[in-house]
Simulated scan of single mutants.
Amino acid sequence: MPIDAAAALAAPPRSTEIAWERKDVLLYHLGVGAGAGLPPTDRDELRYTYEKNLQVLPSFATVAGGGLAKAGGFQQPGIDVELAKVLHGGQRIALHRPLPPAGRAVLENSVAAVHDKGKAAVIVIRGQASDGDGPLWTSDTEIFVRDAGGFGGERGSTARFPAPDRDPDWTVDRPTRPDQALLYRLSGDWNPLHADPDFAKLAGFDQPILHGLCSYGITLKALVDTLLDGDATRVEEYSTRFAGVFFPGETMRVRIWEDVTAATADGRRRLVVNAVSAERNAPVLTDTVLTYR
């Protein structure tokens, strides 16, 4: 069934109640590498791994209460695609205020854009979460669907944030565990591609690969710890484009440039980032931008 862009864009948002507890946040943080590389009881790491004074990485919003899957996943009105042809193309989160360690919210998902790239289609699903105190976050999940283009829609544009033509201002290495994907999937992404060697071979990989959103979280934690004094509440927006695979047990090398042209009068600043597998020098995240105070 071809994509019906008009129907997808006109459909009302799907509303879902979600909830999370401290243990969900703690498990997510362990899944993106908290507690590794330093003594587990290091005070800086305990901000992520101990319920006392617990802070929440903004990337937790991608899995809170079941994440996108809780509201129907990629199957939205006007869109009927084969999951085997779906790739996670990019992710953006805008924070309206710091995420609480435990809470309940209403998540509304809708199709914000449908682009016809010729042979492929790109679908942007927007999630907006609010609780009794108002908006919490807005997320844009960009889905790339092979062999789903040609339906006559607008091509759209792709945001690009290339790294400056100079050496990084900071480079941070984050080793990962061989079982990192097995740990991260407990936060709700049960795709066998990240656990089952036989399934991974069918998909063309020698072994299971790490979730893109796990790489997204690992990189954000590296940025918060390195440049935001470990204070996750300073993050305002975080976006990326998934550029390649990463295997559990490899080292995530995070390259960071300060975008001095983006400083604003109200104190917001911006970092341009990319991440690669240090062992293979292969791209993992590109066009990555962190806006913070």
Rank of each mutant, 00 (worst) to 15 (best):
V172H: 11
L220A: 02
N191C: 05
W20E: 00
G217F: 04
P208E: 12
L193G: 06
G249M: 05
G204F: 11
E82Q: 14
T288V: 08
A69P: 01
G103H: 02
K201A: 13
Y184W: 07
S15L: 10
V124R: 11
R234S: 02
E154R: 15
L26S: 10
H115M: 09
V276C: 15
D147Y: 08
G134H: 03
F60C: 01
F199V: 15
P178I: 08
Q55G: 08
D173R: 15
E258Q: 09
P208A: 08
T219Q: 13
A19I: 00
E236C: 06
H29D: 05
L223N: 07
G90S: 14
T233C: 00
T288D: 06
T226W: 09
R146P: 00
V106Y: 00
T49E: 09
V284H: 09
A181S: 14
P168Y: 05
E154S: 10
I125D: 09
G89P: 02
Q76A: 12
N274Y: 05
A61H: 03
A94V: 13
G188E: 03
V245G: 11
I256G: 03
L285I: 07
D259K: 09
S187D: 04
T261L: 15
D44I: 10
D179R: 11
H88A: 01
Q91N: 09
R92L: 14
M1N: 11
R241I: 05
R241N: 06
D189P: 03
P100K: 15
G89L: 03
T291K: 06
G217P: 04
D165G: 09
W137L: 06
G37V: 12
L193D: 08
L223A: 07
T233N: 02
P101T: 03
V235H: 01
D231P: 03
N281P: 02
V81D: 01
L54A: 12
D173W: 08
K201I: 10
A61S: 15
V111N: 03
P2N: 01
A181G: 15
D131C: 01
P192M: 14
R270D: 01
S277E: 11
T138M: 10
G249T: 12
F74Q: 13
R174P: 14
L213V: 12
R126N: 14
S110T: 14
E17H: 12
E108G: 00
V276D: 13
A232C: 06
G267E: 00
G149P: 03
E17L: 13
R14I: 07
P58G: 02
S157R: 15
R92E: 09
V145I: 12
P101I: 03
G73C: 04
D116G: 06
Y28Q: 04
L223G: 06
D225I: 09
R104D: 04
P40L: 13
R166H: 08
L213D: 07
N274C: 11
P248H: 15
L271G: 04
Y292W: 09
T288L: 04
D42E: 08
P197V: 10
H29M: 05
R268A: 07
L99T: 00
L228V: 05
L68S: 11
G78H: 02
P40Y: 13
L57N: 02
Q128T: 12
M1P: 14
A105V: 00
G152S: 03
R241T: 13
A112E: 12
V124S: 15
A19N: 01
R155W: 04
N281M: 10
L87Q: 06
R269H: 13
A94K: 13
G65I: 01
D169P: 01
D147P: 05
F246E: 10
R43I: 07
A282T: 12
A232T: 10
V235I: 04
